[in-house]
Simulated scan of single mutants.
Amino acid sequence: MSGKNEATTDIPNVRLIGVDFDREGKSHGYIGIQHSTTRSCYYWLPVPITCIKNRSGPTVLLISGIHGDEYEGQLALSKLAADLQPVDVTGRVLIVPMANFPAAKAGTRTSPIDGGDLNRLFPGEANGSVTQQIAAYIEHALMAIADFVIDLHSGGSSIMHVAAAIVVAEGDALRFQRQMALAQAFGAPYTIVYASRSQPHFGKIALAASARQGAIAIGAELGGAGSVTSHSLALTEQGLVRVLHKVGVLAKISDASSPMKTRVLSSDRPDTMIWAMEAGLFEPAVIVGNEVRRGDLAGRIHVVDSPGRSSSEYRFDEDGVVTVARFMTQVERGDCLYRIAFGAEHAPGFV
């Protein structure tokens, strides 16, 4: 079992229902978050969780649905929770497919209850809003007992994201090497490395929470546009199996699931995005995965309700690879249109 101490939490409105992390075998249950409503005064939100434990080995936390409109992880983890058997496991696997349960049920990025973006609220608040309580439980009860954390995302409803493992470099060379080993095992076409210092919100995301609790963690971005493809789902499922094998939880995997070579990119600067500066309809010029040069056309915004008005052109300020592209055609001022990343030689830390 994990070399970490078992966590104790003091989150009065949260209880574990139907699952015992120390019991051998497989159990399915819920993280119950008290939430009194007019419809049900003693209601508790049922955040699904599965625990699979067998013999002694590492603890791995697999999590998705932090944003409710990102579906590859939710599907892959739901299938894994049903299919993975204790006999296949050496250690413990915790599976949380709908982490922000209200958002996942609604198919929205943020919670319809309190507007909370779970990936901006770690370490949470024990007596805070519903989403803050979920964050507090995940960090202090789940991540605290995990040796490894895999946090699955995609572009959600509004954007497409190139399929990539995500590594946040914290400045520790050994930790970074272990993160990169997991990313290479995951086997996405790209691995994007961020410096923790590059974005002010990074301290509030799940990967930062995992690091605070001493876990080796990577994320993944696996598509978007509020949909799933057979390719993106297969990549997710195979990547999870390879990571579980890499950390010693699964003894055997199929030879057919060998990882592809991942291309390492850096996105450690806050100025890698192009934002819309007016409302209108966006005509894209490139898609995710395209190589672009400084000055290349990114797209145009058309103000259709102003007859005869010329469109506004947007161009890239740097050379790079397009990692994020807006999917929704309607845009408002301030919407992200594109994000780019750079070659490995620019990656922070130790690449």
Rank of each mutant, 00 (worst) to 15 (best):
Met1Asn: 07
Gly3Phe: 08
Asp10Ser: 01
Ile11Glu: 00
Leu16Ser: 02
Val19Pro: 08
Phe21Asp: 00
His28Met: 14
His28Gly: 10
Thr37Phe: 13
Tyr43Phe: 15
Ile52Gly: 01
Lys53Gln: 06
Ile63Asp: 09
Tyr71Lys: 07
Gln85Asn: 07
Pro97Val: 10
Phe101Glu: 15
Ala106Asp: 15
Ala106Trp: 14
Gly124Ile: 01
Gln132Phe: 07
Ile134Thr: 04
Ala135Ser: 08
Ala135Trp: 12
Ala136Asn: 08
Asp147Val: 00
Phe148Gly: 00
Ser154Phe: 03
Ser157Tyr: 12
Ala164Ser: 13
Val167Tyr: 08
Arg178Ile: 02
Gln179Cys: 04
Pro189Val: 02
Val193His: 08
Gln199Leu: 14
Gly203Cys: 05
Ile205Met: 12
Ala208Glu: 02
Ala211His: 15
Ile218Val: 11
Gly223Pro: 03
Ala225Ser: 15
Thr229Arg: 00
Ser232Asn: 14
Gly248Tyr: 15
Ser258Val: 14
Arg263Asp: 07
Ser267Tyr: 05
Asp271His: 06
Glu278His: 13
Gly280Cys: 10
Ala285Trp: 09
Arg294Cys: 11
Asp296Gln: 11
Arg300Glu: 14
Asp305Ser: 13
Arg309Ala: 11
Ser310Thr: 13
Glu318Asp: 14
Val321Asn: 05
Gln330Met: 12
Gly334Thr: 09
